[in-house]
Nucleic acid binder design. Structure first.
Lengths: 305, 305
DNA sequence: CATGCAGCATGCGCATTTCTCATTGGCGCG
DNA sequence: CGCGCCAATGAGAAATGCGCATGCTGCATG
């Protein structure tokens, strides 16, 4: 089973030698392991070109699953090892929320509770079914999950946002109808529904076709695409705040739709009574409330169901 | 890493001896492996009561992740090994759909193409992010997934169903308002939204409170609960057909809501050109059309958006 | 309360796996 | 062509994993 680690490292580095360095082994060891694995599978995993190696098509697919599994194992092992440690708090968090909202303020928590060290596990979807390898998590959805207690991290609204440069270069965007002359960025992922139709409905627009579409598979990619002026994205108030505040993004319309989905702080019943968990939970909710208070001066909004 | 397999088996059997039998090892080997793992983690995984062993709390959580990872690895390994084999077709399928719709007709496929052997991987959620460890899949959702082609397996409607016995024993169910005297079964899972509010809206009912609620974490459990007369479940036309046909379930109202979600046959681009995949896809779509044709005599329906 | 049974733990020697060393061979580049 | 870079190979060393014999503990029985 150690051959899987060898395979993963070799695939990542596209080099047996460098994989060996990473694993504190020799190139020979990697070579042997890969050969064993290839014999077991009955398929080549690497194409050897004398000087370099590349992945075969099978290897590409296999790699995905192997990597998932190894990540899961090491995360769970870390968690199990630190489980009783009052000073290690394991957070699971969706990528976009982590980058935009959590990481920027995490230093405040560390400053306040320096004895608690944090372990942040970022996920792009709910890989493991159930809440067992973290102390606390931030999930996105409708908030009705079994076996956990949830704290809604504010009401979430969705509304178009774009780079201010885009407005200057690609023409005005005063009414939703103007969207037909713009590129619209959509996010299509397993956990995040595309809420453009929902927003259009709220804005009272029917039968509109966008100028062009750009589809991204993760929210974070969509957001960055918008910042880079590639088009108009449907921002979520939960994560778009900092970009609006800094002016990287602007909100061309005044219509916001209240999303049925939102970000929730998720506490498994099992960990709810731990001191470290309570401290973090209280702290995060405070943070969120503060942000909400300071954000109250933002442009007016039209709520809808 | 072999210690993880030992741990998983021991946890499943709650016995080192039986785990050893399963793995073709001796009790000693398991004992050694478990001890190593416990030392590595710095925590006990089993509570030894002389005669029996039970899992500790940490072990319970750890087990979930370990099991996921091992399943993923073995599925991926099977897949990689058979990948080029024109005679092995790997299907990934959601549990309820598999049991209610796919498995019952699978023998027809086997009879028609006896040279193709099937490998069915049932999942309760989308565990691995991306379509890499199967040739074909049946997913549930809104059908907008990147990197795959989808075939909608019929329009899906949702509508209350229950056991005929329930009506006899717990009183009539003629208008939706009568639901306030009945137990309602809800499904709360990561991939399946509870569509009761949606159906109630379609039926024009507001401000109703159910007599009682029973919440299940998987659709298949909900369905079985309904068959067993525990309450009224929101059936999905995609899977409820056989139970309606056999009379195990009945539909008390005539209002059906057209769900925004449905079952889709998912073909990764990578496998779309394989003969075995094309055969199965064509066959399954035929099956679905046939079922739709014979089901056309079912009670009238009110579609809604 | 003595006895037998079932099931896990432990220490030691053997077997298998995994790693390293030394070396070979292919490929690209100056 | 020769040199640098990288992977493959084969044999032996090191590490890991396994089984045997045995010890220990708790439970059921009469």
């Amino acid at each position: 089973m150690t051959s899987l680690r060898a395979f993963e490292a070799a695939a990542r580095h596209l080099s047996f030698t460098r994989a060996a360095v990473e694993l504190n082994l020799t190139q020979t060891a990697i070579s042997h392991q890969i050969r064993n694995l290839e014999e077991l599978l009955g398929t080549k995993l690497f194409v050897r070109n004398g000087n370099a190696v590349t992945l075969t098509e099978v290897a590409n697919g296999y790699l995905q699953s192997v990597r998932n599994a190894l990540v899961e194992i090491s995360a769970a092992t870390d968690m199990a090892a630190d489980r009783n440690d009052e000073n290690v708090l394991t957070l699971q968090c969706l990528g976009t929320f982590a980058i935009k909202r959590l990481v920027p303020v995490l230093h405040l928590f560390q400053a306040r509770y320096p004895s608690i060290s944090l372990r942040l596990r970022t996920v792009q979807s709910f890989e493991s079914n159930m809440p067992h390898d973290f102390d606390l998590a931030v999930w996105h959805g409708s908030g009705d999950w079994p076996g956990v207690t949830v704290d809604k991290l504010g009401e979430e609204q969705v509304f178009p946002v774009c780079s201010p440069r885009l407005l200057a270069e690609r023409g005005k965007l005063e009414t939703p109808a103007d969207l037909s002359n713009h590129t619209v960025i959509r996010t299509v992922s397993l956990i995040l529904r595309d809420e453009w139709p929902f927003w259009l409905e709220t804005a009272g627009v029917r039968d509109i076709s966008f100028g062009a579409e750009l589809t991204c598979d993760y929210l974070i990619t969509s957001m960055q695409a918008a910042v880079d002026g590639l088009g108009v994205v449907l921002g979520r108030s939960g994560v778009v705040g900092p970009d609006l505040a800094s002016g990287r993004l602007v909100e061309p319309f005044s219509v916001r739709a209240r999303s049925n989905f939102g970000y929730y702080l998720v506490t498994p019943l099992r960990t709810a009574k731990l001191r470290k968990v309570q401290l973090f939970r209280r702290w995060l909710l405070e943070q969120v409330n503060q942000t909400a208070r300071t954000a109250r001066e933002l442009p007016g909004l039209t709520a809808a169901e």
